[in-house]
Design a binder for these strands. Structure first.
Lengths: 238, 238
DNA sequence: GGTAAAACATGACTTTTGTCAGCCTTTAAC
DNA sequence: GTTAAAGGCTGACAAAAGTCATGTTTTACC
């Protein structure tokens, strides 16, 4: 399993339009584009490791990545799931700390790496871009607060239902009534995502399936009854 | 209980040296200083409310504040405890969202308010200050990630012990062997801070007291045996 | 295509934590 | 100072979730 270098052009990137880099001055984008390296990763490969020093920023062009932390007993908690267009590793880069989490590919991926010097230079001479980055970080932080409050006070069942609905927003593929979640997570990943044991996830997913709230399609899940899940998640129905 | 306006001079502020505003150009600091308003709050008063629009930034000159969110069942989760020198409300301000949490005074406080126009102006024309703000936000986010992982996988007992040690760092007053936590939290606040029920906190604090890890001094707690608490928190002992 | 490993599933049991009820103590208000 | 309210405490019990053991299915690899 070795890394394979590939060529990707930012200006032609499908994900540019909804990325942080959208609207960048052509010369700034060119600077980023000309100095980056892009690598093809296979499922299971790591992009960066907790405890190591960041040397740049990652931008996902294809595939899916999980960002997680291992606790003392080796149990994993997933902070983020990232998909094409998302950036990785900017938190530790901007706080000038070591990585606080590990990033692992969960679906074969193409990822560009932007050295920190280039990123910081564009950041420095472009206050509008800087403001966008700050806004992005603060938005992300708001999401974390929300999730933390749920972790503190909601049951595992509620959290699982809520997470299914959340993934429906980010990874849902419309298909009439039901929505297929276009992300292949193992039961163990689900457990790491909602903060529980694998067995508990298995039992609850079976419950949801028995109640016809979801169905399984290979390693992916189809949401059949979003309203029913919202009830399970104890959300106020609009 | 009405708010009382007072006068505070930033340039003479005890907390300037360890604040985000330290090292600001004199004219920038003057701008902040001349346009702020300072108010004296009593315990129990609110500084801002979840769901309302931020109009500026708060800076604590004296007293203590909790920042929390209420869930549907009215249960509260405390995101931050803030003390003199700390800033409040910048997250929602920078992400241009409504406040995601409520801030309430827990010990009588003096708090300065900086209108967003002035804050943004200083931010805009001072890239070094901007970088400091970004770094601060990202550091805070790292702390949140850490806490979230603990919430996901540690027991209430471990979290309580860990929180006692954390507060020892931020609010500890040295006194020989033992350390007094200089913050008066109700049992309910402790429960909101670690994400559990009040009764559970009461029982565990009694346990810790019986094991002579802590003692009670009025509404405050004295840490008698930090190493013992670290063992309870399941931390690796250095 | 066969085999080992990983992932998935289920049952039995234990532990942790939440809930409810009741009571005592301190604080705040009239 | 009396009274109400809030906060603190304890016990009994129930519910939720974790753990362990075991078996089955799927996947990956030689």
């Amino acid at each position: 399993m070795q890394k394979r270098e590939i060529t990707i052009n930012c200006t032609l990137c499908d994900h540019l339009k909804d990325s942080l880099f959208n609207g960048l001055q052509p010369e700034d984008l060119a600077r980023i584009n000309n100095h980056k390296t892009c690598i093809q990763y296979k499922k299971g490969q790591n992009i960066f490791y907790e405890g190591t020093r960041p040397t740049g920023l990652f931008c996902i062009n294809g595939g899916k990545v999980k960002v997680f932390k291992n606790n003392v007993q080796g149990r994993e908690f997933i902070f983020y799931l990232a998909k094409p267009g998302d950036f990785l590793g900017y938190r530790a880069l901007l706080s000038e700390e070591l990585y606080g989490a590990t990033a692992t590919v969960i679906e074969d991926a193409k990822i560009c790496f932007i050295q920190k010097e280039n990123f910081f230079e564009v950041l420095q001479r472009n206050p509008v871009f800087m403001k966008r980055v700050v806004k992005q970080v603060c938005l992300q932080m708001g999401i974390m607060e929300e999730r933390m409050a749920e972790l503190a006070h909601k049951s595992v069942r509620e959290r699982l239902a809520g997470t299914l609905l959340m993934l429906k927003e980010s990874y849902g593929m419309e298909g009439g009534e039901s929505v297929l979640l276009d992300i292949a997570l193992s039961r163990e990943d689900w457990a790491s995502l909602i903060g529980t044991a694998t067995e508990t996830v298995i039992r609850l997913l079976s419950d949801f399936k028995a109640d016809e709230l979801i169905s399984f399609e290979g390693k992916k899940i189809r949401v059949l009854d979003a309203k029913g899940l919202a009830k399970q998640a104890d959300l106020i129905l609009a």
